[in-house]
């Protein structure tokens, strides 16, 4: 994925704000000609999981539609999602793998320990859905407004 340090900081901040629950949201941006997801905006969302939000997160279809509408307003697309792992490593869990939607999205995970964000990683689901592959994060200087 391509993005900026300030957007990664915003993901870390959301993880800290949501602690001890998992925080989650959408990555908005564009897809480059070589298929890389370029993230230019975040769309925060509420964790809709009915219970155990310290260990689970959910984004509903309506949340996706809200994010998609926000993306379209900015001539962008939904290119991925992010969530936090409170007091757990920034690696996809078995639950993340079982419940992941389409390959092609970028999945960002930030670990939050005792309320402080630590490691942040990005992942891509394999086309056969069998595993996540680590996705390199290519940082760009923020665009000047």
């Amino acid at each position: 994925m391509e993005t900026t340090e300030s957007l990664l900081d915003a993901i870390r901040q959301h993880g800290a704000d949501a602690y001890p629950e998992e925080g989650c949201g959408f990555l908005l941006g564009t897809v480059t000609d070589d298929g890389t997801n370029r993230v230019t905006t975040l769309h925060r969302a509420a964790n809709r999981h009915a219970e155990n939000r310290q260990r689970r997160y959910a984004l509903t279809a309506d949340d996706y539609r809200d994010a998609d509408a926000a993306a379209q307003d900015q001539e962008l697309d939904v290119v991925g999602v992010y969530h936090s792992h409170p007091d757990h490593p920034a690696r996809p869990s078995e639950t993340d793998l079982e419940e992941a939607p389409f390959p092609g999205y970028t999945y960002v995970i930030v670990a939050v320990h005792d309320g402080t964000p630590e490691a942040l990683t990005a992942w891509i689901l394999a086309p056969d859905r069998s595993e996540f592959h680590r996705d390199e994060i290519d940082l760009h200087a923020p665009e000047t407004a």
């Binding site: 998992e22 989650c24 999981h49 155990n52 260990r55 689970r56 997160y57 959910a58 984004l59 509903t60 279809a61 949340d63 996706y64 539609r65 998609d68 999602v81 969530h83 792992h85 409170p86 757990h88 996809p92 869990s93 078995e94 639950t95 993340d96 419940e99 992941a100 939607p101 389409f102």
Partner: peptide, 14 residues
């Protein structure tokens, strides 16, 4: 017609 994913996961391990 829209194809809309719902998304879930988390650090919970079964």
């Amino acid at each position: 017609i829209s194809i809309v994913p719902s998304i879930a996961g988390g650090c919970f391990h079964r």
